[in-house]
């Protein structure tokens, strides 16, 4: 078992979670909880695959995926922001809707395996020569992984150091105050839900065009959208922590898949090799870890009294008292 390979593919798997998590961070920072990530990712994965199959160009697939997920996110935006409905239940509804659309339009795509082109893989010159880290982060990775490296610091900088980022945070913390300063609360919330949709679509496309290519119905995402929502809480709404969580999680997922391979681990007999049925317990681990991450995240948030955007989940109604 080559630990470096596991860690490298963990980074690739984590990239999917990374995009979805940061997308949800944008949406939640503006005060809108969007539980539809799983469905939007599925829609992204499906439309990316379908568009790529039609045009033979994965970049067009990527674009279509982002637009499709972005558009469907606006259903949630309309219900949650304009109609002021409960964001939890509206997000769940978006999930059902997007999953249904993906399954209907994804019919027959499974058979297209090996025909659809994938996004390119690159090895970065020079950087790949860094001992250990070079092989984990910069050798034969999907281009989406490298875009992810650039994207995280940019997202952090945007949220914390720029004027539009400040407006984003204001809208999520104290929309009434933001409104009196002339910041367009409704418009910004719509926009950041859209951004969350774009990124969830990107995450889905990253799965179906690069990380584990193909369309396998609802198994394509297998709960990663929900894990991403969990990671947002763990990451305390911070993109850099989200990257840390996503890569850790990706590595865990890979480890769970690969640990069954060798007959010995660190010189000891490997129980997962001799009884493959124990693999079912291994498959539980990513989900169990999500719960554990949530416990850690919640305790941290309690201790530091920071994190959750104050207006998260609350509709903003102009002219009413309160947040």
């Amino acid at each position: 078992m080559d630990w470096l390979i596991i860690l490298a593919s963990g980074v690739a798997t984590g990239t999917v979670l990374l995009y979805a998590t940061v997308g949800e961070i944008f949406s939640e920072r503006s005060g809108v909880l969007n539980l539809g990530v799983e469905g939007m990712m599925l829609l992204g994965a499906m439309s990316a695959y379908k568009a790529t199959a039609a045009t033979n160009d994965p970049w067009i697939g990527l674009l279509v995926a982002m637009l499709a997920a972005g558009l469907v996110s606006q259903v949630h935006a309309f219900i949650a922001i304009t109609l002021q409905a409960d964001q939890v239940i509206s997000g769940l509804a978006l999930n059902f809707l997007a999953t249904g659309i993906s399954l209907v339009f994804g019919e027959g795509l499974t058979s297209l395996r090996d025909v659809v082109p994938q996004l390119p893989k690159l090895t970065l010159p020079l950087l790949d020569r860094i001992p250990v880290l070079g092989r984990i982060f910069f050798t034969n990775q999907s281009i989406m992984v490298y875009i992810g490296y650039l994207f995280v610091p940019l997202a952090w900088y945007y949220i914390n150091r720029t004027r539009p980022g400040m407006h984003l945070r204001a809208v999520g913390e104290y929309p009434a105050a933001a409104d009196t300063l002339g910041i367009r609360v409704y418009f910004l919330r719509y926009m950041y839900v859209f951004v969350g949709g774009l990124l969830a679509g990107l995450a889905g496309a990253t799965i179906s065009l690069s990380i584990s290519p193909g369309w396998f119905g609802s198994l394509t995402t297998s709960g990663q959208g929900w894990i991403a929502i969990g990671l947002v809480i763990f990451a305390q709404w911070n993109p850099v922590q989200a990257a840390f969580g996503a890569f850790t999680f990706g590595a865990l997922r890979r480890l769970v898949l690969d640990i069954q391979g060798p007959s010995t681990i660190l010189g000891l007999a490997n129980p997962f090799f001799y009884n493959t049925y124990y693999g079912f317990f291994l498959k539980m681990l990513p989900y169990a870890f999500t719960v554990i991450f949530l416990v850690i995240g919640s305790r941290e948030a309690n201790r530091k009294r920071i994190g959750t955007p104050a207006a998260l989940g609350l509709p903003y109604i102009r002219g009413q008292r309160g947040l």
Partner: peptide, 10 residues
Amino acid sequence: PSGIPTLIQG
């Protein structure tokens, strides 16, 4: 296609 019931539910 088999996704229709899910879609209608959504």
